[in-house]
Computed example of a mutant assay.
Amino acid sequence: MFASNPPPAWIAVAQLLAVVVAAAAILLFRRRRPWLLVFVAWLVCLVVYPFGSTDVLPMLLALYALAVYGSARAAWIAFAGSVAVAAASSYLAVWAHAGGTVAPFGADAPSSASQFAVIMLIATLIGVTVGNRRRYLKALIERAHDLARERDQQAQLATALERSRIAREMHDIVSHSLTVMVTLADGSAATIDRNPERAAEAMRHVAETGRAALVDMRRMLGVLAEPGTSTESLAPQPGTAALPELVERFRAAGLPVQLTTAGAPIGDPNLQLTVYRIVQEGLTNALRYAATARLVDVAVSHADGIVQVDVIDDAAAASTSGVVGGGNGLVGMRERVALYGGVLEAGPGTVRGWRLHAELRADEASPNSEDVA
């Protein structure tokens, strides 16, 4: 209130009620509408100030709320506006009561405005400090959530890649073995009356192929086993050294295969496994669709860190032998070759038959290339 001629009691009560209402509104809506509350505090200060004493409590609360729940820049802008509003209210009070002083400091308008500015500066500094710390903690929490989401996405991606790898291996194992077994079983059924001994030999090859497939399946399941379980089935995956044995199995199934190798094999077991699977898939497709082939030529050459694989047959026309593929073999081969920055070509030969050509670069192995158990 003023130093002389105190206002009537109803004016003091109205002033107190307006200040309380403004402060309550600031406390209730400080998080959602801080700027609106600043304007309300300015209005209360301009309306109430000339009738009694100035009360900047609503502006102090509004500045603090804006600095905490808004931004530091917005708080300093509101502080400048609040200083102007407090100065205007002080001069309005002096004009309304000429000769009086502005309560509660008992000073003239300039002195009162400067003192209010200091009080609002303290409230703004406190709010900016608390707000910056709050925003910093919020940023840390959001960063932690982003890292958690990124970790989950990486885990899902790794799971998808591992599923793709396992699907390729399962296709290579099951498709190759079943194709050989079906072909041998068909041949055995066709010759059992004319040549029982040959039919029995074919069935023995069927049994051997089945056992080999079971060994490969156990090896694959052993890779998927939980840590601490038995590792008896964790044998090395086949490499280029196993190509002659692979070729012999197809010869036993009636496929005329000729294997030619050149150069010293590259020691990378992943690359050797890729070469083995490409040859295996090429011969499996030849056994399925090139039943009339008189020769299937398999050539593997190593030179200057580059491995070239060719599987070429001279069949007159593609034919099926009762086994229909799902088209996953070629996709799997392309994925394997892509891991080594290579190229894969599959299509009709220049004269007849089918040609499969793959080129792999040992020095461009992808970091996502699979581990060999």
Rank of each mutant, 00 (worst) to 15 (best):
P7A: 03
A9K: 15
A9L: 15
A14C: 07
A14Q: 14
L16V: 12
V19H: 02
V20H: 12
V21H: 01
F29P: 05
P34N: 07
L36C: 05
L37N: 11
V40P: 01
P50Y: 12
A62D: 00
Y64M: 15
G70H: 13
S71L: 07
A75C: 06
W76L: 08
A87F: 02
L92F: 12
A109Q: 00
S112G: 04
T124Y: 11
T129C: 04
K138V: 09
L140Y: 09
E142R: 10
R143G: 12
H145L: 15
R149P: 02
A155I: 05
Q156K: 09
L161Y: 11
R163E: 14
L178V: 04
V182H: 08
N195K: 03
R198T: 14
V206R: 07
A207W: 14
R219F: 04
V223W: 05
E226D: 15
E232L: 06
Q237V: 08
A241Y: 06
L246R: 02
G263P: 08
P269M: 03
L271P: 04
G282Y: 13
N285V: 08
A286P: 07
A293E: 05
D304K: 05
D314P: 00
G325E: 10
V331G: 06
L339I: 05
R352E: 15
G353H: 03
W354H: 14
H357W: 03
A358E: 02
E359F: 07
E370R: 11
